[in-house]
Simulated scan of single mutants.
Amino acid sequence: MRTVRLESPEETHRLGVRLGELLEPGDFVGLIGDLGAGKTHLVRGVADGANVPRSEVASPTFAIVYPYSGRIPLYHADLYRLTDYDDLYATGFLDLEGTESAMLVEWLDKIPQAAPRDYLRVTLKHAGGEARVLMAEAFGVRPAALLDAWMG
């Protein structure tokens, strides 16, 4: 596990950009954190790092899953409004696993079984003012390599 303190939304964004530059098809990143913890700042950074046009990046809270076209195909999902695995199944989300895309999933803690066996879990917590603490944990060989490349 790696932990880093981020002093501003801009630092969170920059760390996201670095992750976006490293993502490959098949990567799955689960994001956990309370409202306002910085998940969206991180996702916008990842999208920038994956060369997704800024005009495409939106919160998928109402669409649940939103596709982005960039250096690699990228899906951004938000599970906030879902209550259980059956709700997730009805969205078509499960059909995306194994596609030639990377996935960013916010609120993974609401439906943890949405994560594949191998994934990168990123937790963001408030640390006073604009500061946040980011904790990243890898499950599997590729996620461990991704985490090492991302945070050294």
Rank of each mutant, 00 (worst) to 15 (best):
H76V: 13
R54M: 04
T99P: 00
G26A: 02
A90L: 13
E137H: 12
L31C: 09
T40Y: 05
S8A: 01
P67D: 06
R71N: 07
A115R: 15
R142T: 14
K39W: 03
F62K: 08
G45T: 13
L6W: 00
P53T: 10
S8W: 00
A114E: 11
P73V: 00
A115S: 15
A145H: 14
Y66H: 15
E7T: 01
G36Y: 07
M151Y: 02
I32K: 08
F93A: 13
L35S: 06
R117M: 10
D34Q: 10
L22P: 11
P60N: 12
G98S: 03
V133T: 13
A144C: 08
T99K: 01
R54N: 03
L42T: 05
M135P: 01
W107N: 03
E100P: 00
Q113K: 15
K110N: 02
K125A: 13
L42M: 10
E100A: 01
G16Q: 06
A37W: 07
G70Y: 02
T99V: 00
L82C: 09
T61W: 08
D148I: 03
G20M: 06
I64H: 11
I111P: 04
P9W: 01
D148F: 02
P60A: 11
L19H: 08
V57A: 08
R14M: 02
A90N: 08
V43H: 02
V4D: 00
P25Y: 00
N51A: 15
G128M: 08
L15T: 06
Y85T: 13
A63V: 15
V52I: 06
L31I: 10
P67C: 08
T3D: 00
P116K: 13
L94S: 07
W107E: 05
D87V: 14
G30A: 15
V46I: 15
F139M: 13
W150D: 09
P143L: 14
L19Q: 09
A144R: 14
T91P: 05
G70D: 04
H76T: 12
A58Q: 14
T40N: 03
L6M: 00
P25K: 01
P112K: 09
L96E: 02
R132Y: 08
D78F: 12
S101M: 00
R132W: 06
V57I: 14
V52W: 01
G20N: 07
L120T: 11
P9V: 05
A114Y: 13
E130L: 08
Y75R: 03
G16S: 07
V46R: 10
